[in-house]
Simulated assay, not measured.
Amino acid sequence: MSVLEPELAAPVPGPVRTVRRERGVLQRPGFWLALAFTALVVVAAVAPGLLTGQDPLEIHLAQSFAAPSAAHPFGTDQSGRDVLSRVVHGAGQSLLIGIGATALGLGGALVLGLLGGLGGRAVDAVTTRIVEVLYAFPGLLLALILIAVFGNSAGTQLLAVGVASVPGYARMVRGQVLSVRGSLYVQAERVLGHSPARILFRTVLPNAFRPLAVLVTLGIGQAIVWATALGFLGLGVQPPAPEWGAMLNAGRNYLQQAWWLDFFPGAVIVLFTLSLTALGRAIRTAVQPGGHR
């Protein structure tokens, strides 16, 4: 597993170009569609009762494998459970894992990246070796080890995905800190006699982290995909819990007779990931006017 590493172009001064970029983003239909779908998933995660009144765990064997209809828009599964309600209630768990894993990955990356970017050569060498070891360690193998130790659970998924995302973020944090620390405006502040603490907290850190803030949106989508993959392999939350990856794993045995069991959860995963990616790119365009459109 590795984290998506989009290009982080250096900001170009000029409020006129920034305004034009922001207006261009807001005028794109794709941006509003992505925002609307993301908001819908967030509502499903926070208040699933607003979107469905069905119990995701309620079994009706007489309605097993019912095709999509007005009563069950996404059909029912092998136990007669409403697939729509399971997809809606599964949004909360998937979103929680995505946000938690991204926060965990960024937290570990900040520690390693700041130590490498602001420490001396010895500290930088140690942190670099740690990041390289994490990069060389297969993410799936790491997940298997954590699951063997802690068991199958949402917490294990979160931990595995979060730790696996640390090295990619750490490299970018270190690179940004080194770039900003060696910039002309930081050197000018040193000449003016500003204290190291002032330069660090008021100049280096804000300028280094502003481009990385865009990765939060992209990272959540990537983390959800990883967590879903673990659930599909049976390494995450176990049935009958409504979790997107577990639903895909359970439905793959009935594809010929009930295609909707995998189609609808898979479509939601794809659309949600694409929406988060579109929002992340839009934010990057807005905050980095010199970047790619």
Rank of each mutant, 00 (worst) to 15 (best):
112 L>H: 02
115 L>V: 07
115 L>D: 08
116 G>T: 00
119 G>W: 12
120 G>F: 01
120 G>W: 03
120 G>T: 06
122 A>E: 10
123 V>E: 11
123 V>P: 03
125 A>V: 13
128 T>P: 08
129 R>F: 00
132 E>H: 04
134 L>P: 06
136 A>T: 06
136 A>I: 04
137 F>Q: 06
138 P>Q: 10
140 L>T: 01
143 A>I: 05
144 L>E: 09
145 I>M: 15
145 I>W: 12
146 L>D: 07
146 L>K: 11
147 I>G: 14
151 G>P: 09
152 N>Y: 06
152 N>I: 01
152 N>L: 11
153 S>H: 12
153 S>D: 10
156 T>A: 03
157 Q>P: 13
159 L>T: 08
163 V>W: 05
163 V>N: 08
164 A>N: 14
165 S>A: 15
166 V>L: 12
168 G>P: 13
168 G>V: 12
168 G>N: 14
170 A>Q: 12
172 M>F: 10
177 V>I: 14
177 V>R: 06
178 L>E: 10
178 L>K: 12
179 S>W: 07
189 E>L: 14
190 R>W: 05
191 V>S: 09
192 L>P: 03
194 H>L: 15
196 P>F: 03
197 A>W: 14
197 A>Q: 15
200 L>H: 06
203 T>Q: 14
204 V>T: 05
204 V>I: 11
205 L>S: 03
205 L>N: 06
210 R>F: 07
210 R>V: 04
212 L>M: 01
216 V>W: 00
219 G>D: 09
220 I>P: 05
221 G>F: 12
225 V>H: 04
225 V>C: 11
227 A>T: 02
228 T>R: 08
231 G>Q: 05
238 Q>P: 01
238 Q>D: 07
238 Q>M: 02
241 A>N: 03
241 A>D: 04
241 A>E: 03
243 E>Y: 04
244 W>E: 00
244 W>I: 00
244 W>R: 05
246 A>I: 02
246 A>R: 00
247 M>G: 00
251 G>T: 05
253 N>Y: 11
